[in-house]
Design a protein around this nucleic acid. Sequence first.
DNA 1: AGTAAAAGTCAACAGCCGATTACATAGAGC
DNA 2: GCTCTATGTAATCGGCTGTTGACTTTTACT
Lengths: 190, 190
Amino acid sequence: MDEPAKSPRNAEATADRIVLAAQKIFHQKGYDGATTREIADLAGINLTLINRYFGSKLGLFEKAVLPHLDLEPLLKGTPDDVAKRLAELYVDTGPKEGFDAFVVLVRSIASKDAGPLLMARLQDHALEPLMNILEGPNKLARATLISTQLAGLVLRFRIMSQLLIDDHEQAEMKRLLATQLHTILAAGED
Amino acid sequence: MDEPAKSPRNAEATADRIVLAAQKIFHQKGYDGATTREIADLAGINLTLINRYFGSKLGLFEKAVLPHLDLEPLLKGTPDDVAKRLAELYVDTGPKEGFDAFVVLVRSIASKDAGPLLMARLQDHALEPLMNILEGPNKLARATLISTQLAGLVLRFRIMSQLLIDDHEQAEMKRLLATQLHTILAAGED
DNA sequence: AGTAAAAGTCAACAGCCGATTACATAGAGC
DNA sequence: GCTCTATGTAATCGGCTGTTGACTTTTACT
């Protein structure tokens, strides 16, 4: 049960531990709810190292969370592929452990400090990629309706996840969602 | 531009002023971001009256916000009516002034104190009413997909509302959304 | 071995927050 | 007019937060 032998005086490794701990705490409590002391404790490092390595709490947030707020990796393939992948991924009643940047987004959107950063990032790395894979007319309207549906699903299944769901209902939900997404994604196809 | 002549020593009127101010501040900053001092200043009353009349900040939140978190009034009429009404209401790029309980919800969902109250209330006064107006099978799945879409739209148009939208795109969005909602709402009709 | 820089530690500051206690004032009923 | 109570005010407490400056320890290099 010894400590993991904290490799001696390695700045890079220390910064990594801080980032890992920050992701976990930001995920659980959002930006405002997270405290630098709690992050430091979880990382097993001294509080002041956060400011030394990242300048400020907000600087740490930018390094630990913002880069992972990106929808693009999920949008490869045909409209069919994308619709099924998103349905499978976002209708998920599984355990909520780990780190999810979109959960952090919803839990931090009201923050005076982190909110503006999140909105700008979402614009460039969620709505834009979504518009770029669409064919046909009304790209903005269609991309918006998809992104809002996904945002709502994050809220429902990854934040308000206490309400359990029957397996059959869950399967039906995935089917309905995939159909809904496909309708919008393929609206411009022949 | 005088003050509204604070009627002398009227407890009920004072409590009302506090509620009004609380709604405005909670709307703007969410539960954690709002401070009792700011609410008291806006209401033009002494800070301690909040605790006297409502017990605590959370008590004020329960009286000022929770009762307005109710989807039922919007669900009257035929599926056609409901779909068009929701599309018109939730795809709205208008000014974000006033008080909207669903905005408060999204901005407070991460709060350790207010979060649980909001989740319970949403379950009883949003998902339940939605399920009750549905005919046919898979009520939970369909009601969930509608509620998540609406939640996402709140986030997009009432919180991340800085991005303006072309009139044509907005009209198209309403049309698409109404179709989408109607498909789910009327899934059990003949 | 000696030195200088990097890495880590310690103590504390200044500010804000919700809540409480004790005190002052006005109004209603007799 | 007096008193009791409801209403409003002032001062402050204890706690938490992000951040900073001064100090100590380790590592790398000559």
